[in-house]
């Protein structure tokens, strides 16, 4: 490979030498990367009995394992009562509301159920009746309650009433909202801009009408007198 060039250019021989060595290096690299089969290692042969293993002394691996006594699990209450809270609520509701009228009054599938925005009148076993705009209905099983707001003597008063309370004797719908409220919680009615003010006038009117109907002057049967949604024809709005 070396030519006559070195005579003319003494350092040019380096180029040829380096090329040669590079080629050689490549060859060596290829040889080095060729895989050689790995020899599998075998476990060492067991020691002769003259060298006792330390494991054997403590582990007792040669003895059969001791049988541990196992007991069956106690009978599970979950199989007997798969839904304890639901059952308990149903049982409790049956106790406090035997006729189911209060449950039906506020049932979600009841078209005539009171809705936020309606004016409700609640009468109690003890104390004066309370009326007001229903701001929200909180459905929580036996803890179901309604929030009523009214204005008494220039002061806004709000009251949560539990519908299953034994103190509550009746919940009546005095007046439906003209339009369905587009919120479930009408807390904006606390603001002066949206406050309905006193509902005493409407309640007075309702009571007067109820008195007339109960006396039979208008010739209407009592249970159907309650205000009703226009599109619905179901009755039984009142819970007694």
């Amino acid at each position: 490979m070396a030519s006559s060039a070195p005579i003319l250019r003494p350092l040019s021989c380096w180029k040829a030498l380096l090329r040669q060595s590079r080629q050689q290096k490549m060859c060596i690299r290829c040889m080095a990367t060729a895989q050689t089969p790995v020899k599998k290692l075998r476990p060492p042969p067991p020691l002769p009995s003259s060298f006792p293993s330390p494991y054997k002394l403590t582990h007792k691996g040669h003895e059969p394992a001791k049988k541990i006594k196992t007991y069956p699990p106690p009978p599970s209450a979950r199989n007997k009562f798969p839904t304890p809270l639901v059952d308990w609520t149903a049982q409790h509701l049956k106790d406090i509301d035997p006729t189911g009228s209060r449950t039906r009054l506020f049932a979600k599938d009841n078209k005539d159920a009171p809705q936020p925005g309606d004016i409700l009148l609640v009468t109690f076993k003890t104390g004066d009746p309370f009326s007001g705009v229903c701001l929200s209905i909180r459905r929580r099983g036996v803890d179901t309650g309604i929030l009523l707001r009214n204005r008494l003597m220039m002061t806004g008063v709000e009251m949560w009433v539990k519908i299953y309370s034994p103190n509550v004797t009746a919940i009546e719908v005095v007046k439906r909202a003209e339009k369905r409220a587009r919120r479930a919680r009408l807390y904006y009615m606390r603001k002066p801009k949206h406050d309905r003010g006193s509902v005493e006038g409407e309640v007075e009117e309702y009571l007067k009408k109820r008195r007339l109907i109960r006396s039979g002057a208008l010739g209407i049967k009592d249970p159907t007198m309650s205000t009703k949604r226009p599109e619905s024809s179901r009755s039984g709005v009142k819970a007694r």
């Binding site: 803890d143 309650g145 008494l152 003597m153 220039m154 002061t155 806004g156 008063v157 709000e158 009251m159 949560w160 009433v161 539990k162 309370s165 103190n167 606390r190």
Partner: peptide, 28 residues
Amino acid sequence: GMVVRFDDNACALIGKNGEPLGTRINGV
């Protein structure tokens, strides 16, 4: 279980003996 709240805080003045100072209370 009933929960009551009013829109404002209000009070009525009393004397040292606990008798109200005023003779009328206007409001709920």
